[in-house]
Design a protein around this nucleic acid. Structure first.
Lengths: 190, 190, 190, 190
DNA sequence: GATGAATGAGTGTTCATTCAT
DNA sequence: CATGAATGAACACTCATTCAT
């Protein structure tokens, strides 16, 4: 893979997301993605080793963007609850702005492709959150639980509530988002 | 005339689940499922209209079993917290016993196939839970929230914690399960 | 093949004709014909050895009916031109009443299945015409030509003009039919 | 990028004709045609949208060739009878040289595929004949009949007499061809 | 006599990928 | 760098036919 045209690279990511969201993982094909991106199927193989690598790197790219978004205005000096609330709000804002990318990631994460992801790389994008969580535990503000357990009541509900497939009834108003955060905080706070 | 074989019917469901779990939704094919079930691909079309219907009915069958499992020893006369705790425990017990079915359902629910499910039929299996939830709200034991919002902090964390793809770090010991339930209850209780 | 239910036998012929006309030879299948006839595919094999034999015998049955129709009111004692004119009129009347059967025969006759027909048996149904033709030649009323050559200008134009696929512009009014016969007769008369 | 191969294109047409003639429309398949042409079934889809389009375009190509052949040495300045005689002779010459193509066209024209043909395009190839016919009617050399009616006694008998399936008894000698033309002319001349 | 279950072989078509240009 | 041509392998699905009931 020779990196040359960054515009094309980006168009390719977007086409991949669009096609997968429109017709699903199973029906998505290299030629359809190429068609959507306005390039030849053969050209994809200049930018990506194979189909698998295209999908995985698209996912990682999304995760990178999500990590960036969640950490916007991140300020460790503020109280831990405020920090998490900011992340929570950022999360819903990201979904509102990047619905397609989010939907793709949800589908991807539940497919066997997800096993091919370099988890260390992805985790890196969320490291500050991990550290803040640990600080919260040490300061006895958060329950003495594992990161997974906290995620189950913080990040995962966020995803559930944002997922239109699962949760069409939840309106993403500021009020509702605040209400939901209170619930999440009740779950994890000591 | 030979009689339609219920054993074969069941073997087909199990083969479908197994294949999808092993190689994923996208790579699963009728012929692979048939091979796993030890029958001819053509035979599948005697039992199911097409691939879609095979997958959907497999999912609905799993959901039926899950509903049944969650409602085991269901007793509305007990305190609402106890009722939910029972459901919670039943849920983890179901996953422990039916890991494959659970994994299939997780993948299915995040695929576009999920749009083909008759949601009314599936919801029916979980109706008593809905009613208990509503009773909890009326009795001011549970926060005044929608069913979706409660699910985000009760059923969905259960699934997350049970999902080995997402959450390999959480050990499903009784202790951990109890701890997690406390968190869920903290989130939804008034 | 055990002949048992003549009603079913007839329904089978009609279903065969209908299906072939609706979807064409290539797409016609035993199961579709069985469906149209309201019986099981397996039952067809009680009445017919295989698909081929079903189609061929349907064709022969049609030809029998056509022969019968053409020879209605056949009277060798009348002038030869009148005899042929009667046959000509009968032919168009047959098509008007048995459009489906006619269309089937046209499709069949141009397929390789036609090679499987016992031509001697079919020719038998049209023998009186052959004899009248020969009489016409002997009496020097008709040109000294082969039966094939006469057919090319008598029976075949009849079929062409009746074939909606080829000839949608020709209206089958009595006047047009008379006019066309005059042309046919001009061609073959001495 | 490899260049689309015109030789392959032609081989494909010929293979299509050959297979259809050998085993019939109903039994002809893409893979058999590909096998005959010495290419992969998938390659056919580079040259043709689908099976239907392959068959239809093969037919149109044949019709184009037939039109060209019929109009060889076409000279409107000669007497109308001579013009038609020339066309008639050309027709039999075409069949003699292109038996396979002719047989394919006969089968095709009697199949439901024929409905997919752009008739305007095909008619164009035969337009000069149409005009000559109209001139003949105006000059009161030919009966005042429709083009269809004339075809029934000119082109169609030509096809019948050339069709080995229908007409094995007619020998295509010059003498017989002349004799048959006299009959056709008797039918249509005023 | 009648039929639904069963299947191996086949259908038209699309796939991910390679390669010559 | 980019691509259209090419393909073996696979796809979902239907076929004609058999057979136990």
């Amino acid at each position: 893979m020779r990196v040359k045209d960054e515009v094309k690279q980006k168009a390719l990511f977007e086409a991949t997301i669009k096609v997968v969201n429109q017709i699903g993982f199973a029906a998505s094909s290299i030629s359809k993605i190429a068609g959507e991106a306005g390039i030849s199927p053969a050209t994809i193989y200049i930018y990506h080793e194979n189909k698998e690598e295209l999908l995985v790197s698209t996912y990682v790219e999304i995760k990178r963007g999500l990590g960036e978004a969640l950490l916007r205005d991140f300020d460790e000096s503020r109280p831990i609850r405020d920090t998490f609330k900011q992340v929570w709000t950022n999360g819903f804002a990201y979904v509102a702005k990047n619905r397609a990318a989010f939907d793709f990631a949800e589908q991807f994460a539940n497919s066997p492709y997800s096993e091919l992801v370099n988890t260390a790389e992805v985790d890196k994008y969320f490291e500050p959150l991990m550290l803040t969580f640990q600080r919260g535990v040490q300061q006895k503000i958060i329950k003495d639980i594992s990161f997974d357990l906290m995620s189950a009541f913080l990040f995962y509900p966020l995803m559930y509530l944002s997922n239109r497939r699962h949760c069409s009834g939840f309106e993403l108003t500021d009020e509702n988002i605040d209400l939901a955060f209170d619930m999440a905080w009740d779950a994890i706070k000591l």
